[in-house]
Amino acid sequence: MSVDQKREPVITARNVSIEYEVEPVVKAVRDVSLTLYRGEILGLCGESGCGKTTLAYGLNRLLRPPALMTGGEIVFHDKSGTDIDVRALDDQQMRAFRWDKVSMVFQGAMNSLNPVIKIRAQLFDVFTTHRPEMGNEEKEKRSRELLGLVGVDPDRIDSYAHELSGGMRQRVMIAMALALEPQLMIMDEPTTALDVVVQREIIREIMRLREIFGFAVVFITHDLPMLLEISDHVAVMLDGEIVERGTSEEIYTNAQHEYTRRLLSSFPSLTGERGGFVRGEEEVA
């Protein structure tokens, strides 16, 4: 199986605005529109507080008061051909939609496993909720299969979270997000807490799984060099707005927005010339 390369959208967000209803009101996401295509990796980058996580939560309707989506629409284009208006779903429908169509790997996912129950119970939980017809034997089989897929020894199903390394915990989280073969995975800083070697292994794993299952990914991070390296498209957010969008090549070689250029210049090149990074040449930050 290979990725469906046709430019077929999987989710479309139009003019989304999200506010935090506090005093004074914080406009976290302002009039953002974006389209994500099947099998595509979209890198969403920007600094803390720019609204990238809020936007991601909005796509999956995970916002909680005081956050409120004040405008715009989100349409999910299901594989079956039906379009789902995410904002119009009632609670029951939303529950069925989430994780089945769009799953999420959370920020600090290393710490999002429950520490007092085994990995097995946490994987089973997904099936119990979404695939009630599945028997225990089948769940066990599928759970082990999932662990194998993400490169964790299936026997670790009997482990507790603290018995796994950070990288392994992250892999388990990815396995969990994969469980129902979603069409879109939102990954919010999935590798920030890991060191570079493990980070690379995990990202490679994500790329490999994408080839197998053809899901689309929204990858959120502030590590622009990494995003450029792995994404098909990159969107740069600043103060709640997407200020620039393009393919990785376009952003890297021909950034238009001043902020994107500043972000790019914030990363010293590893092997290239020192460029602007002469030690002690202080800029006023």
């Binding site: 570079v196 070697v197 790329m207 060099p225 450029l228 390296e229 990785s248």
Partner: peptide
């Protein structure tokens, strides 16, 4: 360690390798 450091010079390389 060097190979693992993100490097925008290698745009799309990992995708191509995996494919």
């Amino acid at each position: 360690l060097l190979a693992a450091a993100p490097n925008p010079e290698r745009i799309g390389q990992m995708r191509d390798e995996v494919r």
